[in-house]
Design a protein around this nucleic acid. Structure first.
Lengths: 231, 231
DNA sequence: AGTTTTTAACTTGTCTGATAAGTAGACGTC
DNA sequence: GACGTCTACTTATCAGACAAGTTAAAAACT
């Protein structure tokens, strides 16, 4: 017997709120309905409304300001606050993940420098170019996608399917797409430069150079994230 | 003027809960304190506790089951599940797997040399002793089990759950027993010696020594498997 | 005795209504 | 105009209740 998925009230409220945002035409930055208004509109208790709003806040959909109200998060501009919030609740695991990445990816880069064929290199350079284009247009979502693709494609170039699968899995490990050092403005230019250094070393078949460039890249990213957290 | 960051109670509770998980030694899968227990322990209202738990649930730290309780989630298992699935459903070449192991395990040994506590070392030495006992009685099945445990327990001693989960999945997902070098008679004595070298380096907090000993161990195993196959 | 049913004691989920605390605008005073 | 006070709104937190899911011991039955 397939158990029916009994959903929590707050989950239904989340859906209802998301629909409201679209239906009632709320734009990023707008002040949303207050908790009391939502209580009346949806005929549920304030506790449940608060629970839903709290989740929407953590997932970056809304921002709550004490005494002022609930605001629709400015999606285009800085989604930085939810990123920082996420980091704060996952402070230890992010260092763990980086530690593991710092084990795997530099070696993957070194292998890629030995095994990559012209097709791999062309594809990775293409990803870099696209990344830079999205950086110009401040398209954070696509930048994150292409950053991930860069690391994945590099791993694929090692010609070791197990290693490739591992990097695929690690790069998709974050709970949701909004988590990336690329929300930190000053990281974007650095990322472009560091990616270019890595691909350059791979092109030159410089094993040690690729490994070092990747170590540099990851350590810089972690450092910038950490120093950015101490706001 | 730097505005003081006034934190929400739920944020403090989140921190307190995460400390509790570590301090009170909760493992993934364990049942955590109930909401009422947390209310008493932290002297805050149940609403605030619930808010904190809801956030921890969204960020993947715990899972909540209606009527049952709050459970610590194995976030790393979730992260690596795609990798594990891939390992299970694909035929991987021995050399590919060894290549990946050769990336991960030496570094794991190095971290273990830095982070292992006396309990870890005692447990690993125990595993070595049992391995040697089974070697005497030519019990290959148990030898393979204890060899695997050796590598897993060493990874756990790194105190990095992601790294531990990774080694767990590597040692369990591919047909470990079938391709184990321990089917080769002359490998048994070598394995005993190499394991002892690794644990000795860990005990001496010799980071580089542990790393080199592990590289030596894995390369020897692969070499013996390969030469044994070419008969 | 062995099995089934009931009960009781836990758990999380939701509701209600209160108070504290932050914010912003209205209003009067100087 | 500048400055405080008041007030009405907001979110933050609290306390206590009942509903609903779970589990295991107690009770009832065979």
């Amino acid at each position: 017997m397939k158990p029916i998925r009994k959903i929590r009230l707050s989950e239904s409220i989340i859906k209802a709120i998301k629909k409201m945002i679209v239906a009632d035409n709320f734009e990023p930055g707008d002040k949303f309905y207050s908790e009391n208004e939502l209580t009346k509109k949806l005929q549920v208790s304030r506790s449940s409304v608060r629970e839903a709003i709290r989740i929407l806040e953590v997932t970056g959909k809304v921002t709550v300001r004490h005494g002022k109200g609930v605001y629709i998060t400015d999606t285009n501009a800085v989604k930085l606050q939810p990123f920082i919030d996420w980091l704060k609740t996952n402070e230890n695991s992010i260092t763990d993940i980086f530690e593991v990445n710092l084990i795997i990816e530099p070696k993957a880069a070194a292998y890629a420098a030995q095994k990559a064929d012209s097709g791999d290199i062309r594809k990775i350079e293409e990803i870099c170019t696209q990344f830079e284009s999205y950086a110009k247009h401040k398209n954070t979502v696509e930048m994150i996608n292409h950053d991930r693709d860069f690391h994945r494609r590099l791993a694929k170039a090692t010609k070791n399917p197990t290693l490739h699968a591992l990097v695929e899995s690690m790069t998709s490990s974050f709970p949701y797409g909004g988590i990336s050092s690329l929300h930190i403005p000053e990281r974007i230019e650095k990322t472009i430069h560091e990616h270019r250094s890595i691909i350059k070393a791979v092109k030159n078949r410089d094993k040690e150079g690729a490994e070092q460039a990747m170590i540099h890249h990851l350590e810089n990213a972690l450092h910038d994230i950490m120093s950015h957290m101490n706001i």
